[in-house]
Amino acid sequence: MTRFFVQRLGLALLVAVFVSLVSFLMLRAAGDPAIAIAGEGAAQADIENIRIQYGFDRPLVVQYADWLASALAGDLGRSTYFNATVAELLAERLPITLTLGLCALSFSIIVAVPLGVLAAVRPNSLLDRLALTIAVFGQALPNFWFALILIVLLSVQFPILPPSGNETWAHFVMPTIVLGYYSMPAIMRLTRTGMLQVLRADYIRTARAKGLDPLTVLFKHALRNAIIPVVSLSAVQFGYMLGGSVIIESIFALHGVGQLAWESISRADLPTVQAIVLVLAVLYVGLTLIGDLLNAWLDPRIRVA
């Protein structure tokens, strides 16, 4: 277990460094942050000063090495726009994004897992087809459009929810639905497939033959095994949701990392964009790691293999 963990952790770190290098090169190749800092209508001399002051005039390799060394020491640099360190900005924004991600994931699991189980218990039933239809629709629904439609429906036509902001829980309802709905199909399908396979397995048939309570068989024996792949999928989905929050947060004006990312892109605030890419990548890698570990914990066979 320890070896497994250490290996995975090493890989995760390597991936994070690699991703940061790629994104660093891409971002720096594409734009000049000094002009963005100087602001609209700035004089050339101001821009030159800023370039030197922030060190943008040094070779890219040097800038990256410098950035990486600080990042590894926990210093993500200063925002070129805000008079604050990127770490401060993230500390302020990340909780909102994580809250949204967790809400969305919970919503998704709470709807998708029971649907998947029920669909598997009665394959080809009306319920199964309904679940499948929901899944297919969910995958095809553009989330930004879904968000706008919800606003028109629930804030304008039937005004029960606020259109945007993050002051109260009510502000999180629509973003949760939009973000959660997007990952429901995958979770539901996987639950259904897993349950179908497990229900066909010998030990379930034996358990049933022994006359155990069908519900106990379903939830205690079958679901526990069928859920294993769903766990790691959920971790991955959570990672996707954090990435997808860029669009959702900007529509619902949630002051999270996604909105910060979008605005930092607009302002060419590269240290902030860079740090957010890194943090999201690390989160994703970390979540996959957690998913793997949970899998190993739920299914001892993996540990051996």
């Binding site: 971002l27 594409a30 734009g31 669009i247 990312a261 990548a281 994703y284």
Partner: peptide, 20 residues
């Protein structure tokens, strides 16, 4: 593949498009 999967697609696409 792992590195690619851990890059937030929307964010990276936006950043590159914005700058290029």
């Amino acid at each position: 593949i792992t590195a690619r999967l851990s890059m937030p697609v929307v964010l990276v696409a936006l950043a590159v498009a914005a700058l290029l």
